[in-house]
Design a binder for these strands. Structure first.
Lengths: 254, 254
DNA sequence: GTTTCACGTTGACGTGGATCAAGGCGGCGC
DNA sequence: GCGCCGCCTTGATCCACGTCAACGTGAAAC
């Protein structure tokens, strides 16, 4: 639980102008622009700029009017809120393809902080708002993405409100495993290796726990044989179904 | 925490055909149709039907393909999930104007259960999906509503993950007070009377607590003079700022 | 009136996870 | 090499909230 320490350097992501054409973009299939035609992509290509951030940099500050909107291209970032007395809760993770910011006004309701090195494809807010009104496929895609995020947020509310510390950790590893498997274009299977981009403190803030409890429950899952640790940030799952069973969900291994 | 008791009667909301014209609708200003023109409202008027539910009725069952989408017209409902062992977490409340269901497929990810008497303005799913594609104002309004709900869900994640039991109760009363004040078209002010539609069990499920803790913390807030109880479901707030201070937020009274 | 039953309160006690504290480990600067 | 500094782990203790249990209260059925 971050003690209100100021966030490192690079508050303004240095803008990087040597942009790539949208047709060759790594998040072409997943991002808000995935439904755009080639003409629309041409427009987007000339309007965008990249921004890079080192780990721990502030991408969006709660309460400020953000002057850009955009998509995660590389890296992982966290959406979080800091209470007045230093308690922190992470309310979401942003991976490549995910959208950052809220079109059509209002100050940012949460902080966005980079966890790894992060690259963002950014648009000036007013310009982006024009685009989205002119390109129905973008608005439809944003709606779809927002509905997905709402469902994920509600899933997480169940975790925060009703799951035990151990179930929280197991659920987090299930999600991390599914994401890793998806990146490798395969189904999660026994023996899957997972690399965690988050520190224990980040996990604690995401799961509504303390770092000590995170550490202890990881130890307990390891002792129970549900996970194996290569080092603090790399683990493997010998039995995927056992991990699901430990997560408090009744589902089958998917 | 509901012990997996079966939900009362009225699983299928009886359809009520004596419909009102959309122009005279009570949620005309707030619902997904608020941006529709008179021609569009004509279309909606002929397509809609009302459904009524008594308290405790199941409106949507998790895992089922819902055959209708719609808007809350009257009453309060809860969105919740029941874990295999009976733990329950409420993840949202639905008030008049709020949208029910997810357009463009997928089985329902949560239960929706009426808390009071509820009336819904319902559309056949396939018909509604045609409408939303033909009426950009509906899609834009749904996006706006979904973005608002996502922010609310994330606010609630902060509460579930990091707030104490007493802060949870105070925050819940702040929200209930704001909603009451908005219904009365005034700002929340000292002396405001709040009627709670929820039982202690509903509150417990919403706040990630037990009924005993809810009861005790309400007692503590009463003893501290932050609230006054008329009866178990009616309270007044002598000092609005004191309630905000007890909620763990640093904001001013709004 | 009495019974019943859902809902709410209150008390005694247990415990999961927080807190407080110490120490281990690996990378980096010197 | 050595010291420093994040990051992580582990142990001892505490306490907020859960659990278990009893009882109150009011409305509806009879």
């Amino acid at each position: 639980m971050l003690k209100a320490t100021p966030i490192a350097d690079a508050v303004d992501g240095p803008i990087n102008l040597d942009r790539q054409h949208c047709l060759d973009c790594a998040i072409r299939e997943d991002a808000i622009c995935s439904g755009c035609g080639t003409g629309e992509l041409e427009t987007l290509t000339t309007a965008k700029s990249y921004r890079n951030y080192g780990p721990g940099a502030s991408i969006v500050l709660m309460g400020e009017q953000t002057e850009f909107l955009g998509s995660m291209v590389e890296g992982v970032a966290g959406i979080s809120r800091l209470l007045a007395d230093g308690r922190r809760q992470m309310v979401g993770l942003l991976y490549p393809g995910d959208f950052i910011g809220r079109p059509f006004s209002y100050e940012a309701p949460f902080d966005v902080v980079s966890i790894t090195d992060v690259r963002i494809c950014a648009f000036q807010r007013s310009r982006f708002e024009t685009f989205i009104r002119k390109m129905p496929s973008m608005e439809a895609r944003l709606l779809e993405m927002t509905l997905d995020e709402l469902d994920s947020a509600r899933d997480w509310m169940v975790l925060l409100g009703r799951k035990t510390a151990q179930e929280k950790l197991a659920t987090f590893f299930v999600l991390a495993g599914r994401r890793t498997a998806r990146r490798l274009r395969q189904a999660p299977r026994d023996g899957l290796m997972i690399e965690l981009p988050l520190t224990r403190e980040d996990m604690a803030d995401f799961l509504g726990l303390t770092i000590e409890t995170v550490s202890r429950q990881i130890g307990a899952l390891k002792k129970a044989g549900v996970i194996r640790l290569s080092d603090a940030r790399r683990l493997s799952v010998p039995n995927w179904q056992a991990l699901i069973d430990a997560s408090g969900e009744d589902g089958e291994a998917i």
